[in-house]
């Protein structure tokens, strides 16, 4: 427990210093993805069939999730709310991880998640329920794949985007 605290402390320092070789406990992003899945599933269920119904619940849930994604994408996984819960409540009971992994892939996936949730919010704003449903559906698929199979679907968007973006 003591060593786990020390490690996370030194990582917090390196993350605050903007270190690019940040390492994360691989169990953290999976834990976060599990909570994200629950929030997104609740958001998906709460989207009404027609836009005349109240949109308060899906908007609150998606705005909350957007803040969680946004904090992680902007400031790193150290700033991600679910990751904080994992480190303060779960890690002391589990002990330190067997190995560390790069921070960049899960952090990038938070950015991809943010984009989908923002699209969903814009869809709700314009009364386009199907846009919100599809966007939340994709975000939930990615979160479930991360939580259940440890797949980073968002990461795969990077190479596909690079193939489209880079002209030769």
């Amino acid at each position: 427990m003591g060593t786990a605290r020390k490690i996370s402390g030194s990582r917090a320092v390196s993350a605050a210093a903007g270190s690019s070789d940040g390492k994360v406990d691989p169990r953290g992003p999976r834990f976060s993805a599990a909570i994200t899945s629950v929030v997104l599933a609740a958001a998906l269920i709460s989207i009404p069939g027609d836009s005349s119904a109240s949109l308060l619940v899906p908007i609150v849930l998606l705005a909350f999730q957007a803040m969680v994604f946004g904090a992680a994408a902007l400031f790193g996984l150290q700033a991600q709310l679910y990751g904080r819960v994992f480190r303060t409540l779960v890690v002391p009971r589990l002990g330190p991880p067997a190995e560390w992994e790069e921070e960049a892939p899960p952090r990038f996936s938070q950015l991809v998640g943010l984009v989908f949730v923002l699209v969903a919010l814009v869809g709700l704003g314009f009364g386009l329920m199907w846009v919100a449903q599809i966007a939340v559906g994709f975000a939930l698929t990615a979160a479930l794949l991360n939580a259940v199979f440890n797949y980073c679907l968002g990461c795969e968007m990077y190479l596909l985007a690079a193939r489209l973006r880079i002209r030769t």
């Binding site: 599933a41 998906l44 269920i45 069939g49 449903q133 479930l144 199979f149």
Partner: peptide
């Protein structure tokens, strides 16, 4: 589409896709 049905579809697709990838 009813959102609850959509949730069932999304979860099924995610699990199916994950299992296929794993295989």
């Amino acid at each position: 589409m009813n959102s609850l049905w959509l949730l069932v579809v999304v979860v099924s697709v995610a699990i199916g896709f994950g299992l296929w990838r794993k295989w």
